[in-house]
Design a protein around this nucleic acid. Structure first.
Lengths: 210, 210
DNA sequence: TGAAAACTGTTGCAATTGCAACATATTTAT
DNA sequence: ATAAATATGTTGCAATTGCAACAGTTTTCA
């Protein structure tokens, strides 16, 4: 997995964060990070813990837009979220987040600091990886039936892990949100897939039987 | 809109493209670019013309993953597409595409070339913009009904344009693919929205009446 | 220009889905 | 340890949707 401070020494990282005026925050579980931020165009790095980017529909539906663990990077589009029913919710106590003002990155004059170049290259790799992830999800979401959404989702995970057995990194409630379908309807369709012998499900472990 | 060669002089651009061993191709309409490429991890820039990134389902459904016009950037995840039913289809005659090997960008040592830094910053901005676009589409796709998908899609366009009237940049056939729904069912729901007085549609011009 | 291809609008119908409303089970927080 | 909060599994039912099959229109291109 791409890491934002790859190929940058510890010392250079510290200097870089100072030059970019980065700040580290520690959050309690359930905190909504957005309300704690002053700037609206930032890059966030999860130093430890876990957060989710959520959108709440006008009609009460939740959508998990992103799920972020240690070393994951988010942000740079926060400005488009403010006042638009987005939440960035901390899912673990003592989650530590590094916040960098995005304009400090794009305006940074790197001629004197070699490692900045590596930093921005890393950031580029991470954002392109993220596009691939989004494309995967779009592929899943454009399937027409719940069955096809599940099978497409399983196919993609299975392909990544390189095997017919894998763990779902979600609760079933969250999986339904990820797929954009009703939880109970998904539950029913999972049962159908099991009964018809397409898959085996034990806890969060799925095995494709075809 | 972010432009890959922003703040880079014409001369520097030419030098940059030479240093990155970029190649320009000219394609005829209907060409599938992927089959013409040797490398599988590239950045493409549409110099002129129009292309679409399409995925064909196993069951014959098309999904428009991306739609690219002049100056748009694509690629960097092509490797994950090969053999996975993706097509990059040229939609206009004489479409010109600049192809850059992605590894030439990440491995480039920029200490001697100042403008490379600007280039990679531009690329970063473009990819983050693209993430915002993907998030928009995900938001649309996670709506549960065709009606809500349409309204959410209209809401986002309307918000961008800053007005209740706007043009749909798709054919209706393509819009249905973008929304991941059946074309005729979408057609029916559009009619319902019109009949119920929520929207007005003249050709590709939509007006929100609420 | 003229034929072929692509797009659009419409409708009946069967299949799928969301929703609501439960009962249990599991996890979290004090 | 216990109460509260979340998550899970299930089902009936009404509403929505995909699909198929048309006819008519517009666009493409040789």
């Amino acid at each position: 997995m791409a890491f934002l401070f790859d190929k940058i020494t510890m010392n250079d990282k510290d200097l870089l964060l100072k030059l970019l005026e980065a700040t580290t925050f520690t959050f309690k579980k359930h905190t909504n990070i957005l309300t704690s931020l002053k700037k609206d165009n930032i890059v966030g790095v999860v130093e430890s813990g876990r957060v989710q980017i959520i959108r709440n529909d006008y009609d009460g539906n939740r959508v998990i837009i992103d799920e972020l663990n240690q070393n994951d990077v988010f942000g740079t589009m926060i400005s488009s979220m403010i006042g638009d029913n987005y939440d960035i919710i901390v899912k673990e106590d003592n989650t530590k987040i590094i916040i960098i003002d995005y304009s400090n990155i794009t305006n940074f004059n790197s001629t004197q600091y070699n490692f900045f170049n590596q930093f921005i290259k890393n950031l580029l790799v991470i954002t392109t990886d993220k596009i691939v992830e989004k494309n995967d999800r779009i592929e899943v979401l454009t399937q027409k039936s719940i069955r096809d959404k599940l099978l497409e989702y399983f196919r993609i995970i299975s392909e990544k892990k390189g095997g017919k057995t894998f763990d779902i990194p979600f609760s079933f409630t969250e999986l339904a949100e990820y797929l954009g379908v009703d939880r109970s309807a998904m539950s029913r369709e999972l049962k159908n897939l099991k009964d018809e012998g397409f898959i085996k499900v034990v806890n969060k472990r799925v095995t494709l039987l075809y």
